[in-house]
Amino acid sequence: MTDLPHSPEQPVPARTSRLATFWRSDLVWSYRHSPVTIVASIVALALILMAVLAPWIAPYNPFNPATLNLMDGMTPPNSASYSDRYFLLGTDNQGRDVLSTIMYGSRVSLFVGIMATLFAMVMGVGLGLVAGYAGGLADAVIMRVADVQLSFPAILIALLIFGVARGIIPPNHQEGAAVWVLILAIGLANWAQFARTVRGATMVERQKDYVAAARILGVNPILILLRHVLPNVLGPVLVIGTIGLALAIIEEATLSYLGVGVPPTQPSLGTLIRIGQQFLFSGEWWILLFPAVTLVLLALSVNLLGDWLRDALNPKLR
């Protein structure tokens, strides 16, 4: 990628012609002409890299309690700690390095957010396609279930699912399963948005001549759905997906505020904010500020990418 020919003077080898086409495509064009999007994608990429590479680049491993010294707690940024270690962004109330906890915490948050959104997306798109295409009883059942689901704020649903999971999983295995329970809870709380959108779009597509033609020709409905309907609803799905990702990360934080979520020894960004929130009045601003800024940057950049994607994928708006 790095030695990609940029200048038109150079002869373009046949092998890269596809890349060149891509480079000149509308999507890329709109990307290159949106400085906000470029910044957002750089920020998002940096944060994701930071999270993925945390075990290798973080100065400390805050998830290993044996390495912590409680007396290092509350060290302000860029100053010497009790045990004479250096913490660029200071430490929290357990003596954990804030920078490292943010890196590891972003990892947890992103993992939960991405998995939950994927889960919601697959479930919502699948059910939405079926409901929109099949109609009738299937439609009624699916959409009524979606109604039930939308009858409650996502947080409430997640809270309830979390509660059920806690009841089903024996107490001693709950903490190991906590992350998966969160993913399930947040995912189940958000599928209905996808389902509604996809169903609406599917119903519109279904009316169109080409689908009718395909149906008359006896094409397998699943094939119709996948080949013709799905590509047409993918745009809105991607848009909801990116915004849903941001939402899932925030929801995880809120669940943590309500006292359920990942174990406090392996904090996510949300847990860090919940902990830091206690120090709002006491002067240890760094415990709250840095995780909060990270969360905002993450959610914001993902949201902005979602925005750009929506505009770019919608040919009518170009």
């Binding site: 290993n64 044996a66 390495t67 409680l70």
Partner: peptide
């Protein structure tokens, strides 16, 4: 949480 760290040692 603090005791978890101490026991880890």
């Amino acid at each position: 949480t603090a005791f978890v760290g101490m026991l880890g040692q």
